[in-house]
């Protein structure tokens, strides 16, 4: 590992100032579960490492009438274990958080870090996109909001410029009769990467017979998480039955763009998109049912 300068700001303002000076040669450290490995294996050689962990104003989770706010330091394990979050309409985040890495990794990793890393197989990105999450971004004289979905440009690539920091995520409240779930297919029960990860948000009418709105997000089967828009529009406004779900799942397969790699063939991944979409829609409906009670 190469030598680097380690900096520990205590406010967002201070972090922005340091990051602006460091520019491209600086990297942000939150949980460190990605950056430390990159540096150890020589994939990153930053001159400066800016440790955000001591910026207390970014360490929060807030459930409000109008939605959910997650600070940049909110850890994956926090999301997994938080009772209020688990009991909320956003419990898909708790579930997805529980599928990421190992307990040790989850204790360190942050949700915002998982987003900013922009790995094609990231576990939190599909559910955040399905929930319509937006990121608050602060930089030198810049303050903007971007949908998580719009942030993703490619594997490891986001719209973030050097000097810009995601300070929090905000998720709008969900309408009634909405269910959201995440299904991860991987060889092992824990500490594994998704072969396919699918998140679905489903809004139905009050007796759960018709679909009002749907978002289907496919992870690990393209350079970034993919919205299966054709499958979504197929469901929207239609009656919900097994054939319909089956057809949506098959449509989603055509929208996925998996590659052959050491973790699975494209053939297998396409097959798994169908299975995962089918199962996730069913689970989302179950969520609606639970919410109705």
């Amino acid at each position: 590992m190469h030598d680097f300068e380690y900096l520990r700001p205590e406010t967002i303002e201070e972090a922005m100032r340091i990051y602006k000076n460091g520019g491209k040669e600086a990297r942000l450290l939150a949980g460190g579960t990605e950056l430390v490995n990159e540096m150890r294996f020589g994939k990153s050689r930053p001159e400066q490492v800016i440790d955000l962990k001591h910026i207390r104003e970014m360490d929060f989770m807030e459930l409000r009438e109008d939605g959910l706010r997650l600070g940049a330091l909110y850890r994956v394990r926090d999301a997994e274990c938080s009772e209020p979050l688990r009991m909320s309409r956003f419990n898909v985040l708790s579930h997805a958080a529980g599928t990421l890495g190992s307990p040790q990794v989850r204790n360190k990793a942050t949700i915002v870090g998982n987003v900013c890393r922009a790995s094609p197989s990231a576990d939190l990105i599909p559910p955040l996109i399905a929930l319509g999450a937006r990121a608050k971004i602060k930089g030198d004289g810049v303050e903007k909001v971007a949908a998580v979905q719009e942030m993703m440009l490619g594997p490891g690539k986001t719209i973030l410029e050097p000097g810009e920091i995601v300070t929090e995520l905000e998720i709008p409240n969900l309408p009634d009769y909405t269910g959201c779930s995440y299904c991860k297919l991987s060889p092992r029960k824990s500490l594994d990467l998704a072969v396919v990860g699918v998140a679905v948000m489903l809004q139905t009418d009050s007796n759960m017979s018709r679909c009002i709105d749907a978002r289907i997000v496919l992870g690990a089967v393209g350079p970034t998480a993919i919205r299966a828009r054709k499958a979504e529009s197929l469901l929207r406004g239609r009656g919900l039955n097994e054939d319909m779900i089956e057809e949506a799942a098959r449509t989603a397969v055509d929208e996925s763009k998996p590659l052959d790699d050491v973790r699975g063939s494209a053939w297998y991944r396409k097959k798994m998109v169908e299975v995962a979409v089918r199962r996730t829609i069913a689970n989302s409906l179950e969520q609606v049912r639970i919410g109705r009670r």
Partner: peptide, 8 residues
């Protein structure tokens, strides 16, 4: 990527 089974 070389997967060993884990306790669970």
């Amino acid at each position: 990527d070389y997967k060993l089974f884990l306790a669970p």
